[in-house]
Simulated scan of single mutants.
Amino acid sequence: MPNLLSETSGLMAFVRTVEAGSFSAAARDLQTTPSAISKSVARLEKKIGARLFLRSTRALTLTQDGHILFERVAPLLRDLDSSDEAIRSEITPSGRLRISMPSEFAPLLLPRLFDGFASEHPNLRLDVGLTDRFVDLIREDYDVVLRVGNPAPADLMVRRLAELPMVVVAAPDFINGMEPPETVEALAAMPFARYSLGGIPQPLRLADGMSFIPSGRVDCDSGAGLIHAARSGLGAAYVLHCLVAQELAAGTLILLAPAIPFPKLPLNVLHAFGQTAPARVKLFCDFMAREAKLLEAV
């Protein structure tokens, strides 16, 4: 491969086009024009003597050579970018920090994030997205993502923050006239507000690895929805203990089957900056690690 040090702008244009999905989106990120991005990529293609994209009126598709170059170059450029920012912001972290977290964590984490982290770092601009879907961290331009469960992407840095216990809860009136479930079979026979992804009800898992698909007439794709349904007496709900601690203390929800062991789910923070994350990302991860321990203890 020819020496590409003279094509830094072309490499940046190429990598951002792949990550953003189009010349237009890459141009917005790099504060230039789609034409300039296209010309930079064309010069790079001429330099290496290979097509990097298959171009059509509707989409850009990476060629095999494009895949190879992206896999080699993208981590290097990210490391250079983040190293430069880390040096510049070591004393006073600044700039935008874009965060994604599950919506049900908002009542627990946002007050701490805004009252603590934001006030400690006044030069940071926070952009917080609340969604229960798994965002594409790179293509959707997030710096850090909080996720519950075991992450799949092998190209992301994962830091485990806490192990959060799961419980089954219901409204007090829900079990009137019923025997409290003391066995897995009795629990499986009860109606649930079910957690559903893409219209598919998800299994309720036990600590020993066993699982079952609960029955019920209410399906939700978020923990917050399950809690509301349970509070309304529409079924039991299988949720994180930290999300219902206040309702349990107030008596608006009660624990079902406390003798049956349920698993703990990992709370992780993910980013794509490799080993040289910017100071703003490191500070956020350290802050969340401290706060997550409080959730673990709830």
Rank of each mutant, 00 (worst) to 15 (best):
Glu7Gln: 14
Glu7Trp: 07
Ser9Val: 11
Ser9Asn: 12
Val15Tyr: 03
Val15His: 02
Ser24Thr: 15
Ala25Glu: 13
Ala26Leu: 09
Leu30His: 06
Thr32Ile: 05
Pro34Gln: 10
Ala36Phe: 01
Ile37Phe: 00
Ser38Val: 06
Ser38Met: 12
Val41Cys: 05
Arg43Asn: 08
Arg43Glu: 08
Leu44Glu: 00
Ile48Met: 10
Gly49Cys: 04
Gly49Thr: 02
Ala50Met: 09
Ala50Lys: 12
Arg51Asp: 14
Phe53Gln: 01
Phe53Met: 08
Leu54Ile: 13
Ala59Val: 13
Thr61Asp: 11
Thr61Phe: 10
Gly66Gln: 06
Leu69Lys: 04
Asp79Glu: 15
Leu80His: 09
Asp81Trp: 04
Glu85Pro: 02
Ala86His: 02
Ile87Trp: 13
Ser89Leu: 04
Thr92Phe: 11
Pro93Leu: 01
Gly95Tyr: 01
Leu97Asn: 00
Leu97Tyr: 02
Ile99Gln: 01
Ser100Glu: 06
Met101Asp: 01
Met101Ile: 07
Ser103Asp: 04
Phe105Tyr: 05
Ala106Cys: 10
Ala106Thr: 09
Leu110Gly: 02
Pro111Cys: 07
Asp115Ile: 12
Asp115Lys: 12
Asp115Pro: 03
Gly116Lys: 07
Ser119Asp: 12
Glu120Gln: 14
Arg125Cys: 12
Thr131His: 11
Val135Leu: 10
Arg139Tyr: 09
Asp141Gln: 15
Tyr142Val: 08
Val144Phe: 04
Val145Ser: 09
Val145Trp: 01
Arg147Phe: 05
Arg147Leu: 11
Arg147Thr: 11
Gly149Ser: 07
Asn150Arg: 15
Asn150Ser: 12
Pro151Asp: 06
Pro151Arg: 02
Pro153Ala: 07
Ala154Val: 13
Met157Glu: 15
Met157Val: 15
Arg159Ile: 12
Arg160Leu: 12
Leu161Phe: 12
Glu163Lys: 13
Met166Asn: 12
Met166Phe: 11
Met166His: 10
Val167Tyr: 02
Val168Cys: 05
Val169Pro: 00
Pro172Tyr: 09
Pro172Ile: 10
Ile175Cys: 10
Ile175Met: 15
Asn176Lys: 15
Gly177Thr: 08
Met178Asn: 13
Glu179Phe: 09
Pro180Ala: 13
Pro181Arg: 04
Ala186Lys: 07
Ala189Pro: 05
Pro191Lys: 01
Ala193Arg: 01
Arg194Lys: 12
Ser196Trp: 00
Leu197Ser: 09
Gly198Trp: 03
Pro203Tyr: 02
Arg205Pro: 00
Gly209Cys: 05
Met210Lys: 15
Pro214Ala: 03
Gly216Asp: 01
Cys220Lys: 11
Cys220Thr: 11
Cys220Val: 08
Asp221Phe: 02
Ala224Glu: 06
Ala229Thr: 01
Ala229Ser: 08
Arg231Asp: 09
Arg231His: 13
Gly233Thr: 05
Ala237Gly: 04
Leu240Phe: 05
Leu243Trp: 05
Val244Ile: 10
Val244His: 03
Ala245Pro: 03
Gly251Tyr: 03
Thr252Asn: 03
Ile254Gly: 00
Ala257Trp: 02
Ala257Cys: 08
Ile260Arg: 01
Pro263His: 07
Thr276Ser: 15
Ala277Ile: 06
Ala277Leu: 07
Ala277Cys: 10
Ala279Thr: 14
Val281Glu: 03
Cys285Val: 14
Cys285Thr: 14
Phe287Ala: 08
Glu291Thr: 10
Glu291His: 09
Leu295Ile: 06
Leu295Val: 04
Val298Pro: 00
